[in-house]
């Protein structure tokens, strides 16, 4: 969709969120029952309007296993992500972190096990229900995955134009402008540019703004600091902290960047490659706070945290 360019100069200072939240979300096509959704408005027996608040985890993985051809990538993963919590999933390349992230949003189907979002198994939903449920997620891709046929403003406006059919064009423009400012970009400068015309760091910020556009309940970050300079990496860390603390969005951060994981996450989970595990050993070899992982005595965890090659000079 086409959005008009804002007239005003951007104001980059922090300011309160100026739009009404998508609280008590509009029932979306294909989702006849919205009672399971956090924030849904319902009327109790006494006739009082209430907003749904639940204690159950936002996302739960039960005995999740993934096999590609004959290659087992994930085995019996059990994980819970509570509302407002950000967890980091760390582990060496090829251990299945990104596969796990894509399982969480239903982009890859598991061989066995369940993925429950707000208590509903993603893989038992119809196409329409799954599509609707995904609008409660925000996904920041490793290479941003911006649509190269669209301008920056159109990229950020895209989820709104697809899901908020009742929003006026001026409202979408205002939100896009706000989102770009929130991620530290000057709307005046980037508005009509295409993804090819901006730097890698700016593309990541735009991807971040696009992921936030729908006010998701859960943000998934796939190695968001990979390929960025240390300063830009820290900018992305700050954006993740902002989403966690100010927007109260739960998050799953997949990363190799230990510094980023320790700074952003409330909890860190370490995955170990299935091929190097003993038959009955769990694939999550660590689950604890950032402070605990630094003091971990497990040699595999310590090796990863310190970044030591040791016996791994030659690949098995």
């Amino acid at each position: 969709m086409t959005t008009s360019k804002p007239d005003k100069a951007p104001q980059l200072e922090t300011r309160p969120y100026p739009f009404p939240k998508f609280e008590g979300r509009e029932p979306v096509q294909g989702d006849s029952d919205t009672r399971h959704i956090e924030g849904s408005v319902f009327v109790d027996k006494g006739g009082t309007k209430k907003v749904l608040r639940r204690r159950s985890p936002l996302l739960r993985l039960d005995n999740l296993s993934v096999i590609f051809n004959d290659n087992q990538v994930l085995r019996d993963i059990n994980l819970k992500i509570r509302r407002g919590e950000t967890i980091a999933v760390i582990g060496e390349s090829g251990c299945g972190k990104t596969v796990l992230l894509k399982n969480m949003i239903g982009l890859i189907a598991p061989a066995t096990g369940r993925v429950l979002f707000n208590g509903r198994d993603l893989f038992t939903l119809s196409d329409k229900e799954l599509t609707e449920t995904r609008s409660h997620y925000g996904f920041v891709f490793q290479m941003a995955a911006l649509f190269d046929s669209m301008t920056i403003s159109e990229n950020v406006a895209f989820p709104l134009s697809q899901h908020r059919r009742t929003m006026k064009r001026s409202e979408i423009t205002a939100r896009v402008e706000y989102l770009l400012e929130e991620v530290g970009l000057n709307p005046q400068i980037v508005w009509d540019k295409t993804p090819a015309e901006i730097s890698g760091g700016m593309r990541k910020r735009v991807g971040f703004a696009r992921a936030l556009a729908m006010e998701p309940d859960l943000m998934l970050y796939d190695e968001p600091t990979t390929g960025l300079d240390p300063i830009m990496s820290d900018v992305i860390n700050e954006l993740m902290i902002n989403a966690r603390d100010n927007r109260r969005v739960a998050g799953v951060l997949v990363t190799h960047d230990i510094k980023s994981a320790i700074k952003v996450a409330n909890r860190i989970v370490m995955l170990y490659p299935h091929s190097r595990l003993a038959p009955d050993e769990p694939q999550i070899i660590f689950d604890g706070t950032p402070e605990e992982i630094i003091q971990s005595t497990d040699p595999r965890v310590a090796q990863f945290i310190r970044g030591e090659a040791r016996d791994r000079f030659r690949e098995a």
Binding site: L107, F139, Q142, A145, F147, P159, R210
Partner: peptide, 14 residues
């Protein structure tokens, strides 16, 4: 290849 199709799906667009 550039994950734009995954991005569409992740935004609730089939």
């Amino acid at each position: 290849v550039t994950e734009q199709i995954d991005a569409l799906a992740s935004m609730g667009v089939n």
